[in-house]
């Protein structure tokens, strides 16, 4: 496919960083605000689609994307498997308030009656394995959606059918 006009390219270049950052925010704050790995990954995936449309069939490193995808999944299932050390598969082994790094959660929270309600100002590192898994899944989804878009896009635009 031919490249788009300079206007589209420039706008894409300008908004690239902003959209990417927004996607990262959605991924990293999945356990605090609406969002999570899948949603943020989808945002960055659409960014890649925008890039593909604007700049045409440039060279994409599918091998690197594939490695990123596998790494994300391995981190995800590995975090689940680490739960076996102190509990069962998918046990939140660094959750709870007693964990110094990932467990702290009540900063900025408030007590209503007997129940402690955390607020949105809870720290980024909280809720145990959830944030790690969010990041891993985010990585996987970014790579997976990009791979799908790039493979189908290059096939449709340039007719390229690369194996592997």
């Amino acid at each position: 496919m031919k490249e788009m006009s300079p206007i589209v390219k420039t706008i894409t270049k300008i908004s690239f960083a902003a959209i990417f950052l927004f996607g990262l925010y959605i991924i990293l704050h999945g356990h605090l605000t609406p969002g999570g790995g899948f949603q943020g990954g989808a945002i960055i995936g659409t960014l890649m689609a925008l890039y593909l449309v604007a700049f045409g069939a440039v060279k994409w490193r599918k091998k690197v994307l594939s490695i990123i995808e596998s790494t994300g999944l391995l981190v995800f299932i590995g975090t689940g498997l680490l739960g076996l050390t102190t509990g069962y598969f998918f046990f939140n082994f660094i959750g709870g308030t007693d964990n110094p790094i990932f467990g702290q959660q009540l900063n900025g929270g408030e007590l209503i009656g007997d129940v402690a309600f955390p607020s949105n100002s809870a720290p980024l590192l909280s809720s145990g394995t959830i944030s790690i898994m969010n990041m891993a899944v985010g990585l996987e989804v970014i790579a997976a959606l990009t791979l799908i878009i790039v493979t189908m896009g290059l096939f449709a635009f340039a007719g390229s059918e690369e194996g592997e």
Binding site: P34, I112, F117, S119, N120
Partner: peptide, 12 residues
């Protein structure tokens, strides 16, 4: 209310 804890939710 959506199942996300915020300080707006009262009553607990």
């Amino acid at each position: 209310s959506s199942p996300i804890f915020t300080s707006q939710i009262m009553g607990g």
